[in-house]
Design a protein around this nucleic acid. Structure first.
Lengths: 242, 242
DNA sequence: CGTGTGTTTGATCGCTTTCAAGTTCAGTGG
DNA sequence: CCACTGAACTTGAAAGCGATCAAACACACG
C-alpha cells in the first residue's frame, strides 16, 4: 500500500499532497517537476467571509486555486446596484489570464482557503504547457455555460422560479449526487439573503418572501435562516421553471 | 505591389485570401500548410435571417467562422420563454469544442455567411496547435466577459437603461470607433423588436415604449423602424445607467 | 387594393419594489 | 444562565414599473 502510494506521489510537493486541485483542478496538468517549481512560490492562506480577493488596487497577488469555501464575483453600477455574476467553488482556478481589467471584484462569500501563485509564474507555465491552457480553457467554457444558464434565469424567470433555481444550484454544488436525484437532501446556504438577492437580481425582501412561500407550501424547510431541507427535489424543480 | 502580396500570401488558399478570420479570427493561428489542409474540407455558405445553425438534430456541421452577419445564441424554458444569451459577429468562431450538449441554439439574426469545417478536422487541429487553442480560449474569455456584463444589465437595470445599453452595444459593434466616442453616429439595428426584447429580458411592447421615449426625449432618431441616429452618444450613455 | 407582419399606442393588471415595522438570531457582558 | 445589543431576516402596506390584453397603425408584398 505505501509502496504504491510512493509510486504515485514520487516527487510531489508536500503542500500539494492532499490538494484537490492536483486532481480535478488545473495543477493536474503539470508534470511533477513543474509542480515542484510552482510549489516553491505558492502560498496557502485563509480569507474571512466578506474579504476582497481581487481589489482593484492590490492586483499584485495574481492567481489562486480555491481549496475550500465559496467565492463570489460581482459587478456593480456607478450608483451602487450590485449583481453577482459568478460563484466559484473548490477546486476552481481564480484569476484572469491575458488581461488586467474586467471590472469584476471577487469576494469570499464564506471563509475561503486559497493556494496563491505569482502571476508571472503562471503566465510562464501557461506558455510552456498546452495542457494547462487546455484545462483553463475548459474551466472558462464551463463558466460561460453557467453564466448563460444564469442569464436565462435573470431575464426570464419569476422571483419564485429564481429562488427555487438558486436552491437547486446550491444543492447540486454541495451535494453533487443529490443535484441530479429527485429525493431528499439538506444543506446550509453559503450566502446571506442580501447576497442571494444580488445573485438573483431581486431585493432581499422578495427573496425572503419566496423562501417563506416555498416553506409554507411544504417544498422546503428552513432552520436558523441558513439551513435548508428539501423533501422532494422534484417538487422544488417543478417550481424552478425548468 | 503584386510582388509583396506574393510574399505574404504564398501558399494561402484562394478561399482564405480575403478572409477576415485569417487575420483577426482563429485561422490566424494556423501555419500555411494547416490552412491548406483545412481549406480542402471547408465550405462557404449563406444562411438566411432566422435560419438555425446548430439545430439539435443536425449536429453534423461542426464548427464555423462567421464571415459576415450576426448570429444570436438563445436558451429557452420548457414553456417557451426565450432569452438571447449571446451575439456573435464576424470573425467569431462558432461551435462548442469538447462537448456535445449545452442546450443552446444558434440562429442567424441577419443574413449570415459562414465558413464551415468538419468537427473532426478542427478537433485534431486544436490538439496539434496550442496557438489555435489559445485563440479559442481568448475568444471564450471575451464571451465570458460579455456574458457577465450582460448579467448586470439583465439583473439590475431598468427597462430604459436596458434599451439604451443595447443601443450602445450595437453601435459599438457596428462602428467600433464611435462606441468609445461621445459624438454622433447612426446605424441599422440587426434585430427585430422581438429579438431585442428576448435579448433584454423584456417584452416587445416595453422595448417599443422605451425606444419611443428616447426618441421623444431627443436622444435618438428612428427611421423605418430599424435605422437609428444618435446625436450625442454621451446623452445615450447617461440613460444606460453606466 | 387587400393581406399579413411588424410595430406602436392605450388601458389595466399584477408582481416586485419600496418603505416601514417587527422578529429572530448570534454574540457579549453582567 | 440570562438579559442586552446589533445585524440579519421576516412581515405588512402601498406604490410603481413592466406585463398583459387589445386595438390601431405602417409598410411590404401579392
Amino acid at each position: 500500500m505505501s509502496r504504491r502510494q510512493d509510486v504515485h506521489t514520487a516527487g510531489i510537493p508536500v503542500l500539494c499532497m492532499a490538494c484537490e486541485a492536483r486532481h480535478r483542478g488545473v495543477c493536474g496538468a503539470l508534470a511533477p517537476e513543474q509542480l515542484v517549481a510552482l510549489a516553491k512560490t505558492s502560498s496557502k492562506h485563509h480569507v474571512d467571509s466578506g474579504g476582497e480577493l481581487v481589489g482593484d488596487a492590490e492586483t499584485v497577488e495574481g492567481y489562486s486555486n480555491i481549496l475550500s469555501g465559496v467565492v463570489k464575483l460581482t459587478k456593480s453600477l456607478p450608483d451602487g446596484r450590485e449583481q453577482i455574476v459568478g460563484l466559484q467553488f473548490a477546486p476552481d482556478f481564480l484569476g484572469r489570464p491575458f488581461q488586467a481589467e474586467s471590472a469584476i471584484t471577487a469576494q469570499a462569500a464564506t471563509g475561503v482557503v486559497l493556494c496563491s501563485f505569482p502571476k508571472r509564474t503562471i503566465d510562464r507555465l501557461i506558455r510552456e504547457s498546452p495542457e494547462l491552457e487546455h484545462r483553463l480553457h475548459a474551466q472558462t467554457l464551463r463558466e460561460l455555460d453557467e453564466a448563460r444558464s444564469w442569464m436565462l434565469t435573470l431575464g426570464r424567470k419569476t422571483a419564485l422560479e429564481k429562488v427555487a433555481s438558486y436552491l437547486l444550484l446550491i444543492a447540486s454544488y454541495i451535494d453533487p449526487e443529490a443535484g441530479a436525484a429527485s429525493g431528499a437532501t439538506s444543506f446550509d446556504l453559503p450566502m446571506s439573503r442580501l447576497e442571494i438577492a444580488d445573485f438573483l437580481g431581486l431585493t432581499i425582501e422578495t427573496v425572503s418572501r419566496q423562501l417563506t412561500k416555498l416553506k409554507v407550501e411544504g417544498v422546503i424547510g428552513i432552520a436558523q435562516n441558513r439551513h435548508i431541507t428539501v423533501d422532494s427535489i422534484d417538487r422544488l424543480r417543478q417550481r424552478s421553471g425548468g
